[in-house]
Design a binder for these strands. Structure first.
Lengths: 293, 293
DNA sequence: ACTATCATTCATAAAAACAGAACGAAATAA
DNA sequence: TTATTTCGTTCTGTTTTTATGAATGATAGT
């Protein structure tokens, strides 16, 4: 739990002074006395334990700490302004913003296909946040993002808070440079082949390992990567065989740079959209999910 | 200038109560009395002019306004927490966040190429914000984004604040379905052709119009679009000829779905990276620009 | 050196936030 | 049903914070 005793009024004053660089000027604009500003900024500095301004003669110049504080303050008070606009002045924001978080390891082709649906339809302002799955759930809970795209589902524990939806089920294939002669996962066909694989903690890899075990055969692993974009690059540039969902190398397959040799039976990469169960739904999220569902 | 008299302390209390749903519980956690919380939340409601909670018996349930306020408050106080962490506790954030804004009309291939450079290199957390050019400059000034990608340069007026850098100069071509017989912009070759063009306010279009005027010939305009992604779709799906920067339809060209018929001489789409001149530079931004420069 | 400008300091006044008791309404239990 | 507990609200006086204005000190410009 966040225990927060920072004084936002102090920060607000500091921010205004930081923006203008002048104390007297800001005091007039905010209709307070210089002394009030001076005192409270000093209190803020004491609270932080670090000076925010460097007193160069009678000028206030931001220190590095001050510059950082100014950035945060700017974001904070602009968010605050948006809140005021919306609740106090009843101005529904002219352009709808939708914040989409996605696992950084996910296929960007897939993410793009997802947003494509909404980009061409309206004047919406979308924001793509790439992060780890953990951060994904954090930011969802903190309302930093409106919807999360992930290739893992939510854990069952506190499932009532989350709402998960299966967006797509992508087949997974053995993909490699054109001109190889491979039709089955037998040791004869695969001798001397290098492999690019997802790491062992991914379901994709387990599925592949089970298959290779079935044929009593060990692949020579050239590289492992959990990032789909990285897998794509490796598949394209190393000449090795790769185990990848088709959508990741869609362009390379249609363009003929890579070839799909065989599709793993009953193995799929799943894509989920996860949202918070909300009493009042985000209109754009609702629409997006409706289109996909 | 933002004149802000919202009480962030009130908002802070409201937020905690909104998160837990209980007043007494929150009072204990924050080490204040119930009465203090109750009074200040009431003041906040009066200031907004709208109730944030609905009093159902002795329970506090968020109204829609309250739910909105809670979302904003969450973002605000998490930003605040980050600030505190960084300045008070000296914890440099474990994962670097870089916020990239880009004009929503820009080629996503280009944006992707730009971020690709940083995605594969480190555990960075990137955020792509799509918006209008005006918003781009606003958000840059407000420190909402660290760097802006645009296909128009900054105006000269207050240029000293901005730092602009030419990232790339993309050739612009006449692109269309395979199998047409076009080599020059003459009326003989182009009779009966439909066109997909950028709108008249774009430099690309002016350049094309000048060329067509030179040949004393009027194109039949099927559609206009300023969004590169939209131009791409139109080029791919309508069977018309399109005037597009090559990078936009890179995949379709290599894949053979579309063909480049001729490249407009001396016409280029420019891509700029725009940043604020900062006393203390964002490490990731510096690195990105270095790689591209 | 003189002056105007600007930030800081200090004493004091105004405003706010606060705790605690009293109150009332609604769940819970007997 | 009635008693009891729980929990939010209201009211009162007190404490704390914030603000003011004059005094102070320091610096840039003339």
């Amino acid at each position: 739990m966040i225990v927060c005793d920072m004084n936002y009024k102090h920060l607000f004053y500091f921010w205004h002074v930081a923006e203008s660089g002048h104390l007297t000027q800001t005091a007039q604009k905010l209709h307070v006395s210089q002394s009030a500003l001076s005192a409270q900024i000093k209190q803020l500095e004491e609270w932080f334990g670090t000076p925010l301004f460097e007193r160069q003669g009678r000028q206030l110049v931001l220190t590095e700490a001050g510059y950082i504080a100014r950035q945060y303050a700017s974001r904070i008070f602009h968010e605050g302004e948006s809140l005021i606009k919306q609740l106090k002045h009843g101005q529904t924001s002219d352009d709808v913003v939708i914040r989409i978080g996605h696992a950084s390891t996910m296929s960007r082709n897939f993410v793009e296909a997802f947003i494509n649906d909404l980009v061409h339809q309206q004047k919406v302002n979308y924001r793509l946040h790439s992060m780890t799955p953990d951060q994904l759930f954090n930011e969802l809970a903190n309302h930093q993002i409106d919807i999360a795209l992930a290739n893992t589902n939510v854990r069952g524990s506190d499932k009532q808070l989350w709402q998960s939806r299966l967006l797509a089920r992508q087949p997974v294939s053995v993909i490699g440079p054109v001109g190889r002669d491979i039709e089955r996962l037998t040791s004869e066909a695969l001798v001397g082949q290098n492999w690019v694989l997802p790491p062992e903690n991914m379901p994709l890899r387990s599925a592949f390992d089970m298959l290779s075990a079935e044929y009593n055969w060990q692949p020579r692993v050239l590289a492992e990567a959990d990032d789909m974009a990285m897998l794509r690059l490796l598949a394209r540039d190393t000449g090795a065989l790769a185990v990848i969902p088709d959508v990741v190398v869609r362009d390379e397959l249609t363009g003929g740079q890579l070839k799909r040799y065989l599709t793993l039976p009953n193995v799929f990469e799943h894509f989920y959209a996860i949202t918070l169960k909300r009493p009042f739904e985000h209109p754009m999220v609702a629409q997006l999910l409706q289109r996909f569902g």
